[in-house]
Design a protein around this nucleic acid. Structure first.
Lengths: 337, 337
DNA sequence: ACTTGGCACTCTGGATACAAGAGTGCCAGG
DNA sequence: CCTGGCACTCTTGTATCCAGAGTGCCAAGT
């Protein structure tokens, strides 16, 4: 159904269109790539490719442009992943290794991805669910307001202010802190929920109301909320020309955490590379963009995701290579700290 | 030199141009605003205004458009600050009061400002220099790597990993922690530098090398670095039409922390409103944008700055009103926590 | 059965021309 | 100092035209 040459033609069209941003015609294909056939032959092949929905012509008698389906075939069977040179990999590594902070790691990762791919980069903060509690600190802000600070073994710090139902004494805080640390130290965050449920009995009755407020905050916010933090960078790489409906909608979508979550969420749960092309993205306003994403993590399990976003007319092999390499090294960096 | 009517004409030109985005002609001025004179009179006035550099015509026989100098005069003497209605103020207040985190306060502030003004919002994290140390925590990550956590009385948490010159024991950490908390608790961050310098003598000699590493991190990073954090939002409000050189450059500038620092830094140090119009901004790439900024803080002193950025063709009175109102309430929220 | 050269056809994009509309500058008179 | 009138200048939109690029199809060649 699609012989080798037709595939070669599709590859040529994708590659040329990506690099020139102009519909590619039969003649230019035979010129640039050395297929030993005539333009007319290419035209016949293109007619078939068009009928099958891999390419279209913007108007009668213009060159052809790949469709989402065409890009999909290219990504799945033709493009592959462009590996990075040793030098490039080293550059990535040292750039990321300079970070001294989780925030800093994430920030640098975004910048790096954006720069490598010349696209918009999107990085999700690593999930806490696989980390373990290293330390819990309670700091009084007023007599009915506490600051809860949770430190994980991955060096991450989460903070949250808590409004208490009643005033609390220094002693009670000390007790609470001791109990929390005794019971939760070393526990994985996924276990915290069940442990916390059993805690009240170890608390002086008069302090249970306040303690309950603290516990509920631990459960609610620390375990659930933080996974939603996402950072975007490289928005300047969006070129107006690439987005017919105007990049206004794209910029808007990029500012919505929820949208970004869905975007990364849609890509499969595995740690491997996922590519979503054009309308494959269910997110409105990003139907003409593609997303290349990958999970990353310190071990074998993915902690979170990162990726790049750009027009469907994207250099997929390079983008995939960059995302894969960066994901790998970020995981490595996180494992070390 | 500029009589009342000429000022009224300038005001009319600014207002109409801001709302219509089209050069405004003499006829439309007499139509919309009820100056009881003829178009010809307006034309004479406009000729004077043009000669003085307050307005220009994009091409012969088009309407007039304000220059930077024209906007400047408008802002200084004509526009004033549009106050917010009580209802609006209440909305701002409740929106900000819902925050439970410093991060959250900042995030909400950005969103709020962007939404109120329909411009790009820029918010700098509040400076630590005026806060006092509430608690210092040291958590071992490995035997030669510590996580330093500093909690301020404003509920802010700073964290930083420290690589030590040699291995450190649990006991040494405990000692160090105790010394740090004993000496620094309650101190303003501005005093910390001098206190830390005197600390080494209270440390067991064998641990001085490690302690020194910790101290230097406290000085270096906590006191200096954090002021640079800035958050941007509402980039989707940039309309391509407003930026002749393309908004690409603007987007690029917005991603550079350094540039944003300069941008806010240029505005005067006082807590009051500052407006920088067009070329008054020394930042390259933002020469055709205006910035309305204000300091905000919990007391009388400004902790940091926030503002909005948009095309020179901006609704200054509204933007100034929004910035002022938001700055006020953010300060209030911060003071409470 | 596939490939090829030839040819007519179609569509875009840029250039040109033209008319309408908007706005101005200037002048002479109130 | 204000006003109406008038000639002048530009932009903007529309219509037309031409060249160029690219296609589809067909008949002939391998």
């Amino acid at each position: 159904m699609l012989d080798d040459r037709k595939l070669a033609v599709l590859r040529a069209i994708v590659e040329d269109y990506v690099s020139t941003n102009e519909p590619v015609g039969s003649k230019s294909i035979v010129d640039r790539h050395n297929l030993d056939v005539s333009p007319a032959t290419i035209r016949n092949d293109m007619a078939v490719l068009e009928e099958q929905g891999f390419i279209v012509q913007p108007h009668t008698s213009a060159g052809r442009v790949p469709t989402d389906k065409g890009y999909r075939l290219f990504v799945d069977r033709l493009g592959g992943v462009k590996p990075f040179s040793a030098a490039e990999r080293r550059a990535i590594e040292t750039f990321l290794a300079g970070a001294y902070d989780l925030d800093d790691v994430v920030t640098r990762t975004v910048r790096l991805l954006a720069q490598l791919t010349r696209q918009v980069a999107v990085v999700q903060y690593p999930s806490l669910t696989r980390s373990a509690v290293r330390h819990i600190e309670l700091v009084p802000l007023t007599d009915r307001r506490l600051l809860l600070i949770l430190i994980t073994d991955t060096g991450r710090v989460e903070q949250r202010a808590i409004d208490l139902p009643g005033p609390i004494s220094e002693d009670a805080i000390t007790q609470l802190r001791a109990v929390l640390n005794a019971c939760l130290d070393g526990r994985r965050l996924t276990e915290v929920a069940s442990v916390v449920a059993d805690l009240p009995e170890r608390i002086t009755p008069g302090e249970r109301a306040n303690a309950a407020a603290v516990f509920s905050v631990i459960l609610e916010s620390l375990i659930e909320r933080h996974e939603e933090k996402i950072v975007v960078g490289g928005a300047a790489n969006l070129t107006p020309a690439d987005f017919s409906q105007g990049l206004h909608e794209v910029l808007e979508a990029l500012e919505e955490q929820v949208v970004l979550m869905r975007l990364l969420g849609e890509s499969g749960d595995e740690a491997s590379l996922t590519v979503r092309i054009g309308a494959e993205n269910q997110v409105k306003g990003l139907r003409s963009t593609s997303v290349v994403a990958a999970g990353y993590g310190s071990g074998d399990h993915a902690l979170a995701k990162l990726g790049v976003l750009g027009p469907t007319r994207m250099d997929y092999p390079t983008a995939m290579g960059a995302v894969r390499a960066v994901a790998r090294y970020v995981g490595q960096i996180l494992a070390e700290s």
